[in-house]
């Protein structure tokens, strides 16, 4: 007992044995689930770099050998997807910036509103996070197609921008839609962060004679840099991966303005079935941007998910 030992006066030997057995079982399970989560991905990648013949002959998860290896599928998929990659990025980036900025502004503004009104507005924001988008699809389609055909109005203007084609105008309503429906979740994420900051920071700013805008720009924005990282990564992943709005507003997988998610389910399909080498290549390519972000900023991504709950 005189020694600083955490096990104290227990029977150390039996404890070690016990721990070891349990440890082994624990690690075995960890590895099993590692397989569970990685096998579909690994299989996909292996299939992507195999020739059709090799796909048919070898085990799906086995790596290609010799003649069975090809980059042809990936090359082909890349050609098919390159236009839609561009579409996805020029849609996702402004939409992410817009919703993140608005979310931060709304969360900051709400802290200035008296408690009762704040709760009311907050409820509306939270419900906005959970609303099934099906409930707004018909109005959305009608609004952008019939009532306010912004895409058609902007087409000549967009066509005159270098690197852009007229059809890219179809992405403008999509960007606005993503911003509007992204505001609730971004607001909630930022709000939880601003609530963790001491009230006295904003109050000190007021006493110092700073305007509300100055407090936002000089105090709140610099302090919330880490949170901007979290929300940006979370929201970019959401928008890039999104399908339903694009599906509603950009008609058809063969539309030139279609983002990646819209094109992917149609790639490599023919009357004779699906060419899985090509489909897996395309799936892998489509996932690359979010996978890179995820691998680089896994902690931020997890934090975004945690805060959402």
């Amino acid at each position: 007992m005189s020694q600083p030992s955490s096990t104290g006066s227990f029977d150390v030997a039996s404890l070690v044995e016990d721990v070891n057995l349990r440890r082994v079982a624990q690690y075995a399970l960890v590895v099993f689930f590692l397989g569970f989560f990685l096998v579909p991905l690994e299989t996909g990648i292996m299939t992507a770099i195999k020739t059709n013949e090799s796909v048919a002959r070898s085990l799906p998860f086995a790596p290609p050998v010799g003649e069975g290896f090809t980059l042809g599928n990936i090359q082909f998929a890349l050609e098919q997807l390159s236009g839609s990659f561009f579409n996805s990025l020029i849609m996702s980036i402004p939409a992410t910036i817009g919703s993140v900025l608005f979310g931060s502004m709304a969360a900051y503004g709400l802290t200035m509103v008296n408690w009762r009104a704040q709760m009311g507005m907050l409820m509306l924001f939270v419900v906005g996070v959970f609303v099934p988008y099906q409930a707004v699809l018909v109005p959305l389609a009608r609004f952008w197609n019939n009532i306010f055909p912004l895409a058609r109005m902007l087409e000549p203007m967009v066509a005159s921008i270098p690197f852009f084609q007229g059809y890219h105008a179809e992405l403008v309503p999509l960007v606005i839609t993503h911003i509007a429906y992204g505001i609730p979740i971004c607001t909630i994420l930022f709000r939880s962060y601003y609530q963790s900051l001491p009230n006295s920071l904003v109050e000190a700013g007021k006493i110092d004679g700073a305007s509300i805008t100055k407090i936002y720009r000089r105090v709140i924005l610099p302090i919330s840099k880490p949170m901007f990282g979290v929300v940006f990564i979370y929201q970019f992943t959401q928008i890039y991966n999104e399908f339903l709005f694009a599906f509603t507003l950009v008609t058809g997988s063969d539309a030139p303005a279609a983002p990646v998610t819209l094109v992917l389910p149609a790639i490599g399909a023919s009357t004779s079935g699906i060419d899985f080498g090509i489909r897996m290549s395309a799936a892998f390519l489509a996932a690359v941007p979010t996978l890179i972000l995820y691998v680089a900023f896994a902690e931020q991504f997890a934090k975004g998910l945690r805060t959402e709950a």
């Binding site: 989560f37 990685l38 992943t237 991966n241 399908f243 489509a286 996978l291 998910l305």
Partner: peptide, 12 residues
């Protein structure tokens, strides 16, 4: 790794 599928699109 366990969380990785969450970063993928449903389409993928």
């Amino acid at each position: 790794v366990y969380l990785l599928p969450m970063s993928l699109s449903f389409v993928v």
